[in-house]
C-alpha cells in the first residue's frame, strides 16, 4: 500500500521536473522553520538565494548575449523579470522574518513568501538553461 502510494507520488513528481523543485524548496524552508533559529534561516536561506540567483543571472546573461542585438527589450524583460523579482522578494521575505518575532503574522508571511519565491527562483534558474527566447523575439 505504502509502496504503491510512494510509487504514484514519485510518478506524479517525475511527470513535471518543476514539481520536484517546488518540493525541494518546501523541504528546505520546512526544515529551517522547524529548527526555529531565525539567524540560521537567514544565513542558509540567504546563501541559497544568492547561489541560485547567481546561477540564474549567469545563465540568463549568457542567453541574452547569445541572441544579442536581435532580442527585443520586451523579450529580455520576460527572460529576466521572474528571477529578478524572485530574488528581490525572497530577500524581502528574509528581512521580514528577521524583523518580526517567530510566530507573529509578518513572520509567517515572510516564511510563506520565502517558500514561494525560492521555488520561483529555482524554477526560473532551471528554465533559464533550457528555455528558448519567447516566440517572436527579434
Amino acid at each position: 500500500m505504502l509502496a504503491e502510494t510512494l510509487s504514484t507520488a514519485g510518478a506524479w513528481l517525475a511527470r513535471k521536473p518543476s514539481r520536484l523543485t517546488v518540493l525541494n524548496a518546501l523541504l528546505l524552508a520546512g526544515v529551517l522553520a522547524m529548527i526555529g533559529s531565525t539567524e540560521l534561516f537567514r544565513f542558509v536561506g540567504g546563501v541559497a538565494v544568492v547561489l541560485c540567483g547567481l546561477a540564474f543571472a549567469g545563465r540568463t546573461a549568457r542567453r541574452s548575449m547569445r541572441v544579442g542585438a536581435r532580442a527585443h527589450p520586451y523579450d529580455l524583460v520576460v527572460l529576466w523579470a521572474p528571477g529578478a523579482i524572485a530574488i528581490a522578494l525572497a530577500a524581502a521575505a528574509l528581512m521580514l522574518m528577521a524583523a518580526y518575532p517567530a510566530g507573529s503574522f509578518p513572520h509567517l508571511v515572510g516564511l510563506g513568501l520565502f517558500v514561494i519565491e525560492f521555488a520561483m527562483l529555482a524554477l526560473a534558474t532551471g528554465e533559464s538553461g533550457a528555455r528558448d527566447l519567447p516566440a517572436g523575439a527579434a
Binding site: V78, I85, M120
Partner: peptide
C-alpha cells in the same frame, strides 16, 4: 506591493 509583484511575476513566468 508584495502581492502585486507576486501576481505580476506569475503572470510573466
Amino acid at each position: 506591493v508584495i502581492a502585486i509583484l507576486v501576481v505580476v511575476q506569475v503572470a510573466i513566468a
